[in-house]
Design a protein around this nucleic acid. Structure first.
Length: 358
DNA sequence: GATTAGGGCGCAAAATCCGT
DNA sequence: ACGGATTTTGCGCCCTAATC
């Protein structure tokens, strides 16, 4: 019923994930010093806040429901609080807090319904900056599958949540950007950003164990394996500072929550579905005259998902089967022949709304 | 002006966090 | 593992604003 549906892929600046997980205390590096707050250029309001469990959950909740301008319009408090698994009271407290430090603006419309605006959304929350005519990310952002975010909300212990956020950044870096087959966190790195009191080897191991719900976690705790892992990964070696324990964790995302994989396979399937339509339609019309680029189809796939795209494309295919070239005369298909992507967008939007109500 | 509805806020209990 | 500190939450009072 709510027109605000959850984003399928939730985009979060790495600097936010780092800030929320806690900045590392280990600033010394081989080449000098590295302060995460400067390195990531983390906006001040994010540094000033203490990131408690409910605050992390609420911020992720906002990011999961905002549009590409960082706006969530007319949404029920209950819905947001439920999503974050907190009371409405805490949601209010945090919304007020976020507003007072300049992270958001919000207004209450009528009982229990608010509109929220994330301030400087692109710069602050996505790390995107204008450059020439396009946007560039300085320190990167991570795409999270909505199912993954929902699982994050189920984590009870803040510190496990913190480790999860770091692991996600690392997966983005090592696997998605650097194309390695696994991401690595060392014991010392984990200890660096967690509060001092939970730095014990067993505690850290236990936390990583609990992440195996949505990460594929592999422990490397034997000295020989540790050293050989270090040897074959130059980037890892470079970012090491201290080694107090030969203990590291290889993490991978489970396929069902891997935003990148999901996106890629869905894109490919949507393209195939489009070509199936083409096969049928070109018996009746000059299909290639429509000039639909694969990149716009991919973006439809990202926004609405393969299932919805396929259902709509199938329906169009059936209409071609049934009506053939007569389709060109029909009013409802007029927009399709003038601007196919606009038409598909419109139809997909209605399609997903219908599903939401049902 | 009485009544009511809704949000803010203080209080205190419960849950969690954190330092040792 | 223990205990003080902090966060989260529900309860209920108070204020405001809308309605009759």
């Amino acid at each position: 019923m709510s027109m605000n549906q959850e984003n399928r892929h939730v985009l979060v600046a790495n600097k936010l994930l780092i800030a929320m997980s806690g900045l590392t205390r280990w600033t010394k590096r081989q080449e000098g010093f590295l302060y995460e707050q400067h390195h990531y250029n983390i906006p001040k309001p994010f540094l000033d806040l203490k990131w408690t469990k409910s605050r992390i959950r609420h911020l992720l909740t906002l990011l999961s429901h905002c549009d590409d301008q960082g706006i969530i319009s007319l949404v029920e408090n209950d819905m947001l609080a439920n999503y974050a698994r907190t009371s409405v009271r805490s949601l209010h407290n945090n919304l007020r807090l976020f507003e007072s430090v300049g992270l958001i603006r919000y207004s209450v419309h009528f009982s229990g319904v608010v509109t929220i605006e994330l301030i400087d959304y692109l710069e602050n929350y996505r790390d995107l900056f204008e450059e020439a005519d396009t946007h560039r990310s300085k320190t990167g952002y991570t795409s999270l599958w909505c199912g993954m975010v929902r699982q994050l909300m189920d984590i009870d212990h803040v510190n496990i949540l913190r480790v999860a956020l770091r692991a996600l950044v690392q997966v983005e870096r090592d696997i998605h950007v650097q194309s390695q087959d696994k991401a690595t966190l060392t014991y010392d790195e984990v200890r660096g950003f967690l509060p001092r009191y939970c730095g014990h080897r067993l505690a850290v191991k236990g936390m990583l164990d609990q992440l195996s719900r949505f990460f594929n976690v592999h422990l490397v705790e034997n000295t020989k394996d540790f050293l050989s892992a270090l040897k074959e990964n130059a980037a890892l070696k470079r970012r090491m500072h201290t080694v107090t324990r030969p203990l590291m964790f290889h993490v991978k995302l489970e396929a069902q929550v891997d935003s990148k994989k999901i996106r890629e396979t869905e894109r490919a399937s949507t393209l195939i579905s489009w070509f199936d339509l083409r096969e049928v339609a070109r018996d009746y019309i000059d299909f290639d005259r429509l000039e639909v680029s694969s990149s716009s189809l991919q973006s439809l796939s990202d926004t609405y998902g393969f299932t919805a795209c396929d259902e709509v494309l199938r329906a169009i295919r059936n209409d071609f089967h049934q009506y053939g070239e007569l389709l060109q005369e029909s009013d409802i298909y007029q927009l399709f022949f003038e601007s196919p992507i606009l038409y598909l967008n419109e139809r997909l939007r209605r399609h997903t709304e219908k599903l939401a109500i049902a």
